[in-house]
Design a protein around this nucleic acid. Structure first.
Lengths: 132, 132
DNA sequence: CTTGAGCTTCCAGTTACTGGAAGCACTACG
DNA sequence: CGTAGTGCTTCCAGTAACTGGAAGCTCAAG
């Protein structure tokens, strides 16, 4: 399939797919017309990257994960360790995000949304609970 | 207080504080020696930006929020609308993140962490539930 | 056979920092 | 009082991860 179809199936913009190829995260077959030609395996790889990125993995870390994926001889303990580290990070981030969401939600509720210039959202955001 | 102290109190690196000044998000008094001199109000503003950024507001949006904050005559409805939009976005992101965290957690649990090369983490990540 | 969408490469720009050099300012120590 | 070290200053360059745009080739439809 062409890059457009792969883009649609993977959720990655075509530009980004080309960029990932540039930096070595993806490779592409070429059709006789010079167009990139992707298989479902490629799309899986794209989705893998897409998901990993949205999980908070940097492109570099995606590369690590993918290299573990590619090198079937690698011990799965490596993958597990990496995943565990990321998991802890995500848990932390999730708590933080939830807190912030709740703060914002509370503030939106308490804000009148009328013409009073002293909106509590601003007040709340600038003085919200500091940690450590 | 100097930039170092403000950095510590706000959680923003000094470099970043200077950068925010560059792009007009922050201003700074200057002491007689030419050093930037910050008040607690400035630190609040920094914390506001720091929190907003970590909430997923872009620097541009922080600017909008801050301009609403600065211009006391503005209706708070504007702030509320902006906050509400962001709130919806955060809720979506939170759901997505939770899903991904759970996926990763399940996978970490099912992965042996031994020398078997067929780690299910990779498999799971690359084929995880696709939506819409 | 042309029109338009989709593909190609390449280069430039963007966002939000981050690092490093060169040099002035302040504190502390001998 | 000199100097060592840390912190501040500016400025310029680099980074990550895209994103946009130009110039040109390719393909399907009318």
């Amino acid at each position: 399939m062409n890059i457009g179809a792969a883009s649609e199936k993977s959720g990655l913009p075509a530009k980004t797919i080309r960029y990932y190829e540039d930096i070595g995260l993806l490779t592409a077959e070429r059709a006789s017309n010079g167009y990139r030609d992707y298989s479902m395996t490629d799309v899986h790889r794209m989705r893998f990257i897409q998901r990993s990125r949205s999980l908070g993995f940097s492109v570099e870390e995606c590369g690590q994960l993918l290299s573990l994926y590619d090198d079937k001889e690698r011990e799965s303990a490596d993958v597990k360790a990496l995943a565990k580290t990321k998991l802890a990070e995500m848990d932390r981030k999730l708590v933080e995000l939830t807190e912030l969401r709740d703060t914002l939600r509370r503030l939106v509720r308490s804000c009148q949304g009328d013409r009073r210039p002293d909106c509590p959202i601003i007040e709340g955001l600038s003085s919200a609970k500091r940690k450590q």
